[in-house]
């Protein structure tokens, strides 16, 4: 699976404030990632750095496995950041034409993308006459113009009314279904839960959790299991036992597995030992996403 974005030890300091602190993660093709964190946790700063508008203090990042420059990479992705920024005196179509010129693509996609975000009937109105919801939808259309490999969305529903929020979410889900890789920053838990497959939780600029959303939201928690060898045997065992749900293979030695009922880790250890499977690592993680999120962020506040 190809890596679209790799962030390594990225740090941004503003004077004594560390907005992003030694952050590393990867964005892989086809997944939908959520960056979750309270306001001021460094989400936008992180996105600003990979989008070339904020200079990192240290660390680095590379797009598309370092095969292109950041500037060329930005022409292949689509991004919207906090407020939709367009030229107020231009119409939607004129604004999008400009984006096409900057990205170096033909303008033939404009009508289609405006239709996706339901702006076709207002396409010749000036941007300054738009409501916030319409501005945000235009921003999405703009980000889609080049059929991006990666779509970056920073708080796309911020400040919108419930109807606007609903519209934006429908659009994002529609895009996600077409297989576009998405990186969504949000402080809203249910938004990430609804849309994303993977989640990265930030607090005060530090990464405090990374994993699949399912792992986080499982009611009975999940297990992290490590074996030196015998991984296949372990997986077969887990599959045939009704304690366990979905299995995610992290690498040759590590897997996570959902629990479908309440069970102690000691019980599981005993069970596996009987089967001659020796674990090198066993951790049980509890709780729902929300509880987890609050727990995780609270732990780090102290």
């Amino acid at each position: 699976m190809s890596t679209y974005l790799k962030i390594k030890n990225l740090t941004k300091r503003y004077g004594s404030l560390t907005a992003v602190d030694d952050l590393s993660f990867e964005i892989k093709k086809g997944n939908i990632y959520g960056i979750l964190g309270p306001n001021g946790s460094g989400k936008s700063t992180t996105l600003g750095m990979v989008l070339n508008v904020i200079n990192p203090t240290s660390g680095n990042f590379e797009w598309f496995e370092g095969k292109t420059t950041t500037q060329e990479a930005l022409k292949k992705i689509g991004a919207i950041i906090e407020h939709p920024n367009f030229y107020p005196y231009m119409t939607a179509v004129q604004n999008l034409e400009l984006v096409c010129k900057i990205k170096g693509i033909s303008t033939s996609n404009i009508e289609e993308k405006l239709a996706i975000v339901n702006l076709s009937d207002r396409k010749n109105s000036k941007f300054k006459t738009y409501s916030l919801g319409m501005k945000q939808r235009l921003a999405i259309a703009s980000a889609l113009l080049n059929n991006p490999k990666v779509l970056i969305l920073d708080e796309p529903t911020n400040g919108l009314d419930p109807q606007g929020i609903h519209q934006i979410r429908e659009i994002i889900l529609k895009i996600a279904q077409q297989g576009t890789t998405i990186l969504l920053a949000s402080h809203l838990l249910y938004e990430v839960e609804k849309i994303c497959s993977h989640v990265i939780i930030l607090n005060k600029g530090k990464k405090i959790y990374e994993g699949s959303v399912k792992a986080m939201s499982s009611n009975y928690g999940y297990l992290e299991l490590g074996v030196m060898e015998q991984q296949e045997k372990l997986i077969n065992f887990l599959k045939n036992h009704d304690y366990f749900g979905e299995i995610e293979i992290k690498n040759k030695h590590e897997i996570t597995v959902m629990l479908t009922q309440e069970v102690e880790s000691a019980t599981i250890n005993k069970l596996l030992f009987k089967e001659n499977i020796i674990l090198s690592h066993l951790v049980k993680q509890n709780s729902s996403l929300e509880k987890n999120f609050l727990e995780i962020t609270q732990n780090f506040k102290n």
């Binding site: 989008l51 070339n52 508008v53 500037q71 060329e72 930005l74 022409k75 991004a79 950041i81 407020h83 920024n85 367009f86 030229y87 107020p88 984006v99 900057i102 990205k103 170096g104 703009s142």
Partner: peptide, 18 residues
């Protein structure tokens, strides 16, 4: 100055202008 006041400079860079 309009590029700053409309924040379009930021958007231009994100769209891939260096």
């Amino acid at each position: 100055s309009t590029e700053y006041s409309n924040q379009t400079l930021k958007q231009n860079l994100i769209d891939g202008l260096s």
